[in-house]
Simulated scan of single mutants.
Amino acid sequence: MTTQTKPIEAYSLPTPNGQKLHIMLEELAIPYTYHRIDIGKGEQFTPEFLAISPNNKIPAIVDPEGPGGQPISVFESGAILKYLGLKFGQFYPIDMRAQVEVDEWLFWQVGGFGPMLGQNNHFNVYAPEKIPYAMKRYSDETHRLFGVLEKRLVGRDYIAGDYSIADIAAIGWAQSAERYGITRDEFPQFYAWFDRLNARPAVAKGLGIGKEAPGTSAVDNKDAAKILFNQRAR
């Protein structure tokens, strides 16, 4: 079993994408340091952060004990979950058929369930101009995606059989289900899964990381990012 002696450096925020990383690290029970990327200050555009996250988005990690014992950075939440699952042999299956199943639902989340809910939230809550077509389009797609998840969970406790990174990827985005009009009467399988996951201590803790305490600002502690930045600049 792989052990971690040096903490993984987690650059993140308590958003649904950031919560995927927080939950995974808590489930693995490995040492990590949370660094808050203050997007209000533009920290996502610093050279050090861009060295580990070229898309200037959170989350990103630096693992000081990467392949061959050398540091490695990983960006994009789905890639991070797969990296950690493979490295530590948890929440990602060994069997190739089971891997395909987990990957399908992981990519379903990163390609649809997250982005479409994000667009729903943007056009219905934050957009300065209310565009009925966009509001309806993304509301309808949100409802459809929850319906896909509802059907998938019939007869299953978890999305891909056993508890996996597919569940971890989706649960943060699922927290706003009621806001999107997703009711318990219409989606009983989803809410049984929702309650089951939220009852896990690591999920509950991961969802709260960064909300009560701001954590260490990436501006104040960028040593791990500098290692990668310097290596890639050579």
Rank of each mutant, 00 (worst) to 15 (best):
M1G: 06
T3D: 07
T5H: 11
K6Y: 00
P7L: 07
I8C: 15
S12K: 13
P14K: 04
T15C: 09
T15G: 01
T15Y: 12
G18K: 07
L21V: 13
H22K: 11
I23R: 10
M24Q: 05
L25Q: 04
E26L: 01
A29W: 00
A29E: 12
A29M: 11
A29V: 01
I30H: 04
Y32L: 03
H35V: 08
D38V: 04
I39L: 10
G40C: 11
Q44L: 02
Q44K: 00
P47N: 02
P47D: 00
F49V: 01
A51D: 09
A51Y: 02
P54H: 06
N55Q: 04
P59H: 13
P59E: 12
A60R: 11
V62G: 00
P64K: 14
P64R: 06
E65R: 07
P67Y: 02
P67W: 00
P67E: 05
G68Q: 07
V74C: 05
V74H: 04
S77P: 00
S77V: 05
G78N: 08
A79D: 01
I80H: 04
I80V: 03
K82H: 12
Y83L: 00
Y83H: 07
L84M: 09
L84G: 12
G85I: 08
L86N: 11
L86H: 07
K87I: 06
K87E: 08
F91I: 03
P93A: 00
I94C: 07
I94E: 15
R97Q: 13
R97Y: 05
Q99F: 07
D103Q: 13
L106H: 13
F107E: 10
V110Q: 04
P115V: 13
L117M: 02
Q119E: 12
N121H: 13
H122W: 15
F123S: 02
F123K: 05
Y126W: 14
K130E: 04
K130F: 02
I131E: 03
P132I: 00
P132R: 12
Y133K: 08
A134C: 01
M135Y: 02
R137L: 14
S139G: 10
S139H: 06
S139Y: 02
D140P: 12
T142S: 13
L149A: 02
E150F: 05
K151G: 02
K151H: 09
K151T: 02
G155E: 00
G161A: 08
G161Y: 09
Y163S: 11
Y163E: 12
Y163H: 14
D167V: 01
I168T: 15
A169M: 14
I171C: 09
A174M: 06
S176N: 08
S176Q: 10
R179I: 01
R179F: 04
Y180R: 04
Y180A: 15
I182E: 01
E186K: 14
F190T: 03
Y191A: 09
A192N: 14
F194H: 14
D195V: 10
D195R: 06
R196L: 12
L197M: 03
N198Y: 01
A199Q: 11
R200Y: 12
R200C: 08
V203E: 01
A204P: 01
G206P: 14
I209V: 15
I209S: 10
G210T: 04
G210E: 14
P214I: 06
P214N: 14
P214W: 07
A218L: 10
N221W: 04
K222D: 10
A224L: 11
A224D: 03
A225G: 13
A225L: 08
K226W: 03
L228S: 03
N230L: 08
N230I: 01
R232K: 06
